[in-house]
Design a protein around this nucleic acid. Structure first.
Lengths: 197, 197
DNA sequence: CCCGCTGTTTTGCAAGGCTAACTAATAATA
DNA sequence: TATTATTAGTTAGCCTTGCAAAACAGCGGG
């Protein structure tokens, strides 16, 4: 596997693109809000998209390098968190259907990273259990955010870290707002490894 | 798309990658920095994941409602931006291979939203041109980010908007840092149409 | 014992990705 | 001029993720 990294390298220099948009924004008769507010909205959207995009591309790259896809790593992490979980729970947390989860588990189990154990209590349920191999894979899985971001973040001034956290949380809250359940995956982090007590 | 959902679907994948990080962060003997700083790092990562996740799920939903996938909308928007573009350019901007772009264009052209026209200058090149139908679709395409977020953002206090923009840009820069190109798609939004207004 | 629910898996289908291989046209070079 | 590279795009073949719907249990009441 391991194919090489796709065309990630072709880069377009976004900077230039970014600059273009302001003008368009200006097109609207500035009726409702100040020109200022508009620009800021655009700026924030652009920044969010940059975040999404770079995470996506970088993630593809890392996942490939790890021999597991991002989605697979995610499943492994969720399972690793508690040691075992039912397909339904995992599906719910990830926001995918049970059918999808079933095939994901198939693939992971073909790789010997998880095993299915029928539950004793209720034989309809399956417990997905992570294997040693799977646990190892989770530990070694490169983490896009971490690698790219953590060091830089930690080198920031204290006040700036605080500001960023507050802003990101605000944005996340605005996006969640609609009721999409957001969280599931989030806490994952905890499990893995944080010493978490 | 800006407005479109960035490949929301892809994002999904990435999401997963993100998750792991906590552990690693935790792995370090808290020698170098205070527990405080650590928490902030985790908080920021978690918030980013929330952003990624809700964008992804919401995007899937909207794309379905629109009858076009997020990726397709994205292509349309890029083409709409200038009226025409070569497959190669679009692929480059989106960070996918030419082969992938070729099939995307096939699908869009089956829907009569774009047409292929051989270039006169260089007959190896194809110009992908958006049709009236395609243009209409772009205008009507719901935009995940926009719909969920814009209104709320615009209702924030001025200082808060400024803070958020600064923070998001900081984060985006840190993520881009590695050299993954980030933005291309971003500015598209403008054209599509934020109701702007 | 039969019915209805409830977790899972199967089936069948589509989108999006990729690499490799192939075609066509243009550019370079002998 | 003829040959060779390069470049743009498409094709073929494969994989993963997703979903809905149908099929399979297994559990609980009646």
């Amino acid at each position: 596997m391991m194919r090489s990294i796709p065309s990630v390298e072709n880069e377009i220099h976004l900077m230039s693109e970014l600059q273009t948009l302001p003008l368009k924004a200006g097109g609207t008769p500035e009726s409702l809000r100040t020109r200022h507010a508009m620009d800021r909205t655009d700026q924030s959207l652009i920044a969010i998209r940059r975040i999404l995009r770079s995470t996506e591309l970088y993630g593809r790259k890392l996942a490939k390098a790890a021999g597991l896809t991002a989605v697979q790593i995610r499943v492994l992490q969720i399972v690793a968190e508690t040691g075992q979980a039912t397909p339904k729970d995992i599906a719910k947390r990830m926001g995918v259907s049970q059918a999808t989860m079933s095939s994901l588990i198939d693939r992971l189990s073909a790789k010997k990273m998880v095993e299915r154990h029928q539950s004793q209590r209720d034989r309809r349920q399956t417990n997905v259990v992570i294997t040693q191999i799977g646990r190892q894979a989770v530990l070694e899985a490169p983490d896009a955010l971490q690698q790219k971001y953590v060091k830089q973040f930690e080198s920031l001034e204290d006040w700036e870290q605080a500001m960023i956290v507050a802003s990101l949380e605000r944005v996340a809250a605005m996006l969640d707002a609609e009721g999409i359940d957001a969280s599931p995956v989030l806490d994952i982090g905890d499990l893995s490894g944080r010493p978490h007590s």
